[in-house]
Amino acid sequence: MWKHSIKAGAGLLAVLGLMGQPAVSAEWPAKPITLVAPFTPGGTTDLMARAIAQQLQNELGQTVVVENKPGAGGTVGAAYVARSAPDGYTLLLANVGHAAAAALYKTLTYDFQTDLDSITSVAYVPNVLIVNKSLPVNTVAELVEYIRQRPGEVNYGSAGIGSTQHLSGELLKSSAKLDAEHVPYKGASPMMSDLIGGRLAFALDSAGSAAAQIAGGNVKALGVTTLKRASAFPDLPTLDEAGVPGYSMTTWYSLAAPKGLPPEVETKIYQAVVKAMKNPAMQKTLEGMAAEPGGTPPDEFKKFVVDESRRWVDLVSSSAIAKN
């Protein structure tokens, strides 16, 4: 009698335990999916979100709606996704800034690594070191020397505190032992306007947004931030090649979900992204953004995110750029 009661109780607990888990149908997705873009409409992150959403919709046979939730360097949108059910119906288009957010924002209500599951990469975009066209430098080495001769006097711009341009600039200062002043803007467009106008000396902007200004001769491009030369700028050296040994910065975009995403759903999303990368329309979109395609296997990408987070925490701590 006692043994039967124990077995019955154990069975009931098992059922209750299953009831406590989110119900994920084998037919996932059975309803529309929301992809949160944590920045304003029209920017690179938003455009990337809409491009991959369309491809996911094609591959999964279900509507994928992009919802913009901007604020605090992308952390408002990330926090929203972290609080959502881990059923695969709410996803985040994350980027490199989310890996640095823990060091930049001390009052975050979520942890990028423990509250979200990184699934796979969507794209990798190099930044380009660009200078005002009137600046008397034409190489990375000349810019480094120019700044060293004017400690604390040379300004560089970014799209804001914690933006990829800001992280790139601080990494350059740290790697080359430079003393340059950071000027944050509310977006890449006003920053570019001031660079062209001569109120800034240099910037490290996304290849996609800088390409038109480079092609138009409005700014001079000196190098790319990735360890390998960028296919969009094959003649530009990497900063590593050009005299800043070991310099490496890539603006990456990825898909993330609330922690606890069922493995079978993660696999379906990953496989859909891999197929999307082979779609001519997606390839054309990425080419227009000077981006390399993603589709990194989940296990490999999770390790990459851990390494990236550690790297940016170390940089932010050493450069004293953390926010409250």
Rank of each mutant, 00 (worst) to 15 (best):
S193F: 10
W312E: 00
A180L: 01
A256W: 03
P86Y: 09
K259A: 13
K173T: 03
I161S: 10
F304C: 00
K268E: 15
I214K: 07
A211V: 02
E241Q: 15
D115Q: 12
N132A: 01
K228T: 15
E67P: 00
L227D: 13
S209M: 09
E292N: 05
G71L: 13
A102I: 13
W252A: 02
L171A: 12
T139D: 08
K278T: 13
G260C: 03
W28G: 09
A159Q: 04
S317L: 04
A159V: 03
G162A: 08
G217E: 14
H182K: 01
A257C: 02
T45A: 15
F304L: 01
E59S: 13
N279S: 11
E300C: 01
I52P: 03
W312D: 00
M19C: 15
P38I: 05
A85Q: 15
L204I: 11
E264D: 14
T75P: 03
K177D: 10
R148S: 06
A221N: 12
P237S: 04
K323W: 02
K275I: 01
G152M: 05
L143R: 13
N138F: 06
L239P: 03
D314A: 06
S118Q: 09
G157A: 07
N218L: 15
V140S: 01
G11Y: 08
W28L: 09
P41R: 10
P38G: 06
S25R: 02
G9C: 05
L178Q: 07
L56P: 02
D307C: 00
N68S: 07
L222N: 03
V273T: 03
I196V: 14
L135K: 05
A230G: 06
P32Y: 10
I214W: 14
E153A: 14
Q54Y: 10
L236T: 10
D46V: 07
W28A: 08
R148W: 04
K268W: 10
Y89P: 00
Q54M: 11
G169Q: 11
E67L: 04
N279R: 07
A322I: 05
K186R: 09
W28Y: 14
S134F: 09
S189M: 10
S158D: 11
K7P: 00
L286M: 12
H166E: 14
D111I: 09
G160K: 02
Y253N: 15
N132L: 03
G20S: 15
T251H: 15
E308W: 00
T45R: 12
G294P: 02
A232I: 06
T226C: 02
S158N: 11
M249R: 08
A257M: 04
L60H: 11
S5A: 09
T164C: 08
L315K: 00
E266P: 01
T296K: 00
L204T: 11
A207G: 10
A123V: 02
G157T: 12
V265S: 04
